[in-house]
Design a protein around this nucleic acid. Structure first.
Ligand SMILES: [Mn+2]
Ligand SMILES: [Mn+2]
Ligand SMILES: [Zn+2]
Ligand SMILES: [Zn+2]
Lengths: 146, 146
DNA sequence: GGCCTAAATGCAATATTGTTGCATTTAGGC
DNA sequence: GCCTAAATGCAACAATATTGCATTTAGGCC
């Protein structure tokens, strides 16, 4: 049906319960989830996955471009721009921890040509902008969560 | 004398042996070093630092802008653009692992205004470009180290 | 120079995160 | 319904990071 099964089948991977569950967990949040956070989430729904399995699934999802590891915020988020290879641009709210993925061709190009000016042959890049999301910017002075 | 003692004193921190040693270790390499790698390096010079101490020193260095944690490459590098706050732009060689820090006002501005267009209030950002340094690009096909 | 004290470091114990090898289970082709 | 490669589970382990408290020390003061 969904996105996941299609991608898995298209690349010759099996469609399994654990993969669906991890995918759903990522889908259900805009904040990055660590492997163990995913495990706990699923456990609350009385479903147990070994942490090794979760690591392996997240690793697969990363390779398939189904999820990203957000470094500043340590954890995984579902990719919401499938197909966009090698250029990952995230904005991360330091208050609520939410992450949004964007694409921007121009910035991407600039970033690569800048690297080239430094004698560096760029292949991919990662950009993480930290600040406040619109919601949290409005509610400033309330409380810093993250 | 050097950079380090000045910064420490200016901010009311003590100038100590361990801080000098960690700083020197970072100065001596262009590849990111993890806390434990620093410990091992120093041990080769017959100097022992507890890993907790190293963690605390690296944490301090980060806060003082003396060092950065490079996320893609997990480890710390010495800051080579002191004063440049909130805008960290690194190029990272996937072959030799070397990291270079740069600044680019224009990209910085663009990045922030792009975030704003998304309704996001940017405060700082991190950019890590992966590829091959000039040296490794020349020697392509030899061997991938990292 | 020798005190004094807050700051820095060491140490031990523990927590968190990630990895490896191998046994067991299961998806999907036949 | 079989069969088998792929996926998952499990146990043991390795690596990384954190905490609380004891000990040492840098640097201000006399
Ligand atoms: Mn994506
Ligand atoms: Mn810097
Ligand atoms: Zn927010
Ligand atoms: Zn290189």
């Amino acid at each position: 049906m969904g996105n996941l099964a299609d991608v898995l089948r298209a690349r010759g991977y099996k469609v399994t319960g654990p993969r669906q569950q991890v995918f759903d967990a990522l889908e259900g949040t805009e904040k990055p989830l660590s492997p163990y956070e995913i495990q706990n989430l699923l456990q609350e729904e009385d479903s147990f996955l070994n942490h090794v399995t979760i690591y392996r699934i997240l690793d697969l999802f990363s390779r398939l471009g189904l999820a990203h590891r957000v470094l500043s915020n340590s954890g995984f988020v579902k990719c919401n721009l499938p197909g966009q290879e090698g250029c990952h641009r995230f904005v991360i709210c330091r208050c609520c921890g939410s992450v949004q993925e964007f694409a921007d061709k121009e910035l991407c190009r600039k970033e690569k040509s800048f690297a080239l000016d430094c004698g560096f042959h760029a292949e991919s890049h990662l950009s993480e902008t930290l600040g406040l999301c619109a919601k949290c910017y409005g509610r400033r002075d309330e409380k810093t969560t993250i």
